[in-house]
């Protein structure tokens, strides 16, 4: 198989990991807590889209279905933060971690109850079509994944740099106490950050389901995305994307060139390597924060 072909498929996969990692980093930056339910939020968003769009579901047009699922997931994440996470405000981070793991389980089993545990696939308008460049086949789904990811990341970047709310979110992550002092509604912003990461999770889920199948256990993908976020440097948005791309590209290459089974280990091996060589991750802000 052409290594370039592997690379393209890997990049598309990597975008999904990158988007999930982005969700991890967003929440971590704004609230200093790690949301281990991120992968399950992705799975849940994907299933919602699936039942809205598929023929044996509500059979809505693809775009409409996705938009409704995104909005629903944003609201759900907002409410989850407001009702559960906010109660742990001021408690040790560990309790938040345990709570999010529990939330993940709950989402997984609710999804199992509603949609069953069988793998299902999302019917997309771009399934099965492809462009061919010489020996390289570029599936429409891969192209859509890459383009959507780039747009989303670009949009988030502009949001954080140029909007009032985005700036306030940065402020919360840099100095939460000072954010209170200047009158930023810190708690409401935490909920909004959860909503935003619910949106990125849903988009990641749609892209993931469009490329293959999804079942309630797909949320475990979140662990791989977590590794990606660590590789990129937890707390860095571009780092999350790059980390995701690295994991995505390494996987198929390891699958092809390394003995069977090693592709599953590869992302974590890289994570360990990064932790040993550059503990703060590839794109770390630590050096600047020491001031």
């Amino acid at each position: 198989m052409d290594p370039l072909q592997l690379l393209v498929g890997g990049l598309a996969n990597g975008c999904v990991y990158g988007l999930l990692a982005l969700g991890f980093v967003l929440i971590y930056k704004a609230t200093e807590a790690v949301n281990f339910a991120q992968g399950d939020m992705m799975m849940f968003g994907a299933f919602m889209t699936l039942s809205l769009v598929n023929q044996d579901g509500y059979n809505l047009p693809f775009g409409v279905g996705v938009c409704i699922a995104i909005a629903a997931m944003a609201v759900l994440s907002y409410v989850l933060e407001m009702t559960f996470i906010r109660r742990l405000f001021g408690q040790p981070q560990f309790s938040v971690v345990v709570l999010t793991i529990a939330l993940g389980f709950v989402l997984r089993f609710i999804a199992g109850l509603i949609w069953g545990h069988e793998p299902q696939s999302l019917e997309t308008p771009f399934a099965g079509r492809a462009l061919t460049f010489g020996s390289i086949v570029l599936g429409y789904d891969d192209i859509v994944v890459i383009v959507v990811t780039l747009l989303l990341v670009g949009g988030l970047y502009l949001f954080f740099i140029y909007t009032r709310v985005g700036l306030a979110m940065q402020a919360c992550s840099q100095n939460q106490l000072a954010a209170y002092y200047v009158g930023i509604p810190v708690k409401r912003l935490s909920s909004i950050v959860w909503a935003v990461s619910g949106v990125t999770a849903t988009i990641a889920g749609v892209l993931f389901a469009a490329k293959g199948t999804i079942d309630p256990a797909s949320g475990l993908l979140g662990i791989k995305a977590f590794a990606a976020a660590v590789i990129g440097g937890f707390g860095s948005l571009p780092g999350a994307l790059i980390g995701g791309l690295i994991v995505g590209v390494v996987e198929p290459l390891a699958q092809f060139y390394a003995p069977t089974g090693y592709s599953q280990i590869a992302p974590y091996a890289i994570m360990l390597l990064v932790l040993v060589v550059r503990p703060a991750g590839i794109f770390s802000q630590v050096a600047q924060k020491k001031v």
Binding site: R164, A171, Q174, A178
Partner: peptide, 16 residues
């Protein structure tokens, strides 16, 4: 202060 933001951004956040 907000350490990783410019002086101007710090001031604009004061006017949040």
């Amino acid at each position: 202060v907000f350490p990783l933001m410019s002086v101007l951004d710090n001031l604009m956040l004061g006017a949040y």
